[in-house]
């Protein structure tokens, strides 16, 4: 179940951010998504925020410091979605 959720979030990242050359198994659960690791940027964060809102009905607050932590890695993002989805 947990693995499925990880795969689902990775696929969401790939589809939303048009990462045409990257496959699900190339994204490491614990690695940073932004700057290092996958190398995403601030526009990607906004794009991903909207995709998560659309898919899981969770609205993220761009102003809080916590948002940075939710986006830290696939693991963090999966935990965040699990805790907040209805």
């Amino acid at each position: 179940m947990s693995n499925n959720m990880h795969t689902e979030v990775k696929q969401l990242i790939i589809d939303t951010l048009e990462l045409e050359d990257i496959e699900v198994n190339e994204i490491v659960d614990s690695e940073p998504l932004f700057v290092e690791g996958l190398g995403l940027d601030s526009i990607d964060a906004l794009e991903l925020g909207i995709a998560i809102q659309k898919k899981y009905g969770i609205k993220m607050d761009a102003e809080t410091q916590d948002t940075r932590e939710y986006f830290a890695s696939v693991n963090a993002l999966v935990n965040f979605i699990k805790q907040n989805r209805h």
Binding site: L17, E18, I43, L46, E47, I50, K54
Partner: peptide
């Protein structure tokens, strides 16, 4: 619908 930030930018 919400706009795509990447496309908007």
């Amino acid at each position: 619908k919400p706009l795509s930030p990447a496309h908007f930018s």
